[in-house]
Write a protein that binds this DNA or RNA. Sequence first.
DNA 1: GTGATTGTAGACAGGTCTGTCTACTTTGTA
DNA 2: TACAAAGTAGACAGACCTGTCTACAATCAC
Lengths: 193, 193
Amino acid sequence: MNTPALPPPGARERILRAAHDLFYRDGIRATGIDRVIAESGVAKLSFYRHYPSKNDLVLAFLEHRHARWMAWFEGALARHGGTPQALVPALKEWFANDGFRGCAFINSVGELGGAVPGVKEITRRHKADMAKAITRLLPHDPASASAYRQRRLLATDLATAVDGAIIRAQYDGNPKAALASLRRILRSLTQSA
Amino acid sequence: MNTPALPPPGARERILRAAHDLFYRDGIRATGIDRVIAESGVAKLSFYRHYPSKNDLVLAFLEHRHARWMAWFEGALARHGGTPQALVPALKEWFANDGFRGCAFINSVGELGGAVPGVKEITRRHKADMAKAITRLLPHDPASASAYRQRRLLATDLATAVDGAIIRAQYDGNPKAALASLRRILRSLTQSA
DNA sequence: GTGATTGTAGACAGGTCTGTCTACTTTGTA
DNA sequence: TACAAAGTAGACAGACCTGTCTACAATCAC
């Protein structure tokens, strides 16, 4: 688990990385186990020792993705000023990535629905954490309980708009329209508050 | 094609209906051709006579879904008053459906990405038509060109928020939070305009 | 050294996938 | 009546899927 030095990444890690790239790029159902095994350069038996079934790997993929994405998200928001307005340039970075294929969680829920237990739960957790990160961007008045509630609702609304923008950026050729739309919604929501 | 009376639905129609239900409920990759054939009570050869490949059926499914969903959407908006505020109760109807599984187009793009040519194009068309229907809810001043543009931008933003709300309703257990969020975004966007 | 753990390579089983093919039947129309 | 179109049932090929199994090698703790 905790390897102080950096020996060659180890089978478990290599499998997870390969699965992450393939699942995110091609989709989960479209990616066979054999493909993950070939890509990670691991033996089949090693694979099944670490992940007894594909479903286990899918859940591990989502957990991994969650940690990785949240770290990027919080870093990007901080880099762009740590205000609500930072959402737009942060997402712009992501959307501009060559490998951008939308939100892995939204895609997984859409693809697997209720077929793989746990996917919706992880997605809810992921989106709750995303909303929490957005909440931290908002100014707050610790004295007022009603302001506290307002702040949470505003963060929820921003999160809804962010989800919409992610989707739009995914099916539109370019992300400009999605970002412009998000910018306007953001302005409207934050000025009226 | 045009059958004046109503003889038993015909193979093509039955295939399309079965595919619609299965693709929407279980996903496209998860649904085999054999399943569609069994469900529609059609012979395999008949199937391949109408749809030379699964991809053809997928595109036909999306076209069918588009027509069906738009008809429902425009009807629901009209029933609920034809104002921008009608969006919330209209979507509430949809979300409350037992079989609700999100937006078929968003799901298909997420699942198939670029693997099936045409899916993104149909999705863009679908979402553009959805935005058009939303545009029609907005009051307009035919004299002003800048107001015309404002109206289109506002409709785009509402469409973005609607997409976000659909996603949230899909992964959240119940659609209340998604609808409340949409209602607040709607209020903010329409009052400031 | 000994044994447990973790690794490698790859055959194999049993199922499902898409798509083709044969053989026969029904229906509508000229 | 004769023919073409559209239907039915179901076997089949070849690929890919998940998951199991055999056989052997390297590493490390005791």
